[in-house]
């Protein structure tokens, strides 16, 4: 157990962070909160990847004569891509939120559901 926690501390924290974010994504009613959760979730997964690539005693994966061991560069590459994807998703999500605010006057999920239930079937704008 101790070995599990010490040997995999990074992973455990990554999981904890991911799940905090995941919770916010699905349990929060406020749409912006959901997106904050999404960012925490995804960044935590990135931490998980970066931790996979770490080697004890390794140096940054840049060619250097004195290096004995390098860290694994592949997770870094993947996460560079993933960060951009994550930000793009966030941007689209915020755009949607702004439009939702304009159309419904609120960004709380439960209120939007209420508004929809109370009729008003019209096009926006």
């Amino acid at each position: 157990m101790v070995e599990l926690i010490l040997g995999k501390f990074n992973y455990l924290i990554a999981i904890a962070l991911a799940m905090i974010g995941f919770y916010a994504m699905i349990a929060k009613s406020n749409l912006i909160k959901k997106i904050i959760g999404m960012n925490i979730f995804q960044t935590a997964v990135f931490l998980f990847y970066i931790s996979i690539g770490k080697v004890h005693g390794g140096t940054a994966p840049i060619v250097w004569d004195k290096a004995v061991l390098y860290d694994n560069p592949l997770p870094h590459v993947l996460i560079l891509t993933a960060i951009v994807v994550s930000v793009s998703t966030t941007a689209v999500a915020f755009a949607l939120i702004i439009r939702i605010q304009k159309a419904f006057g609120t960004i709380e999920e439960d209120k939007i559901i209420e508004i929809k239930r109370n009729g008003y079937k019209g096009d926006m704008e």
Partner: peptide, 19 residues
């Protein structure tokens, strides 16, 4: 589209799709 329900539908899909 012009329907405002499409916005929330899209947002829900975004959340679950991202999950």
């Amino acid at each position: 589209g012009k329907k405002r329900e499409a916005l929330t539908a899209s947002f829900n899909y975004l959340i679950l799709g991202t999950v």
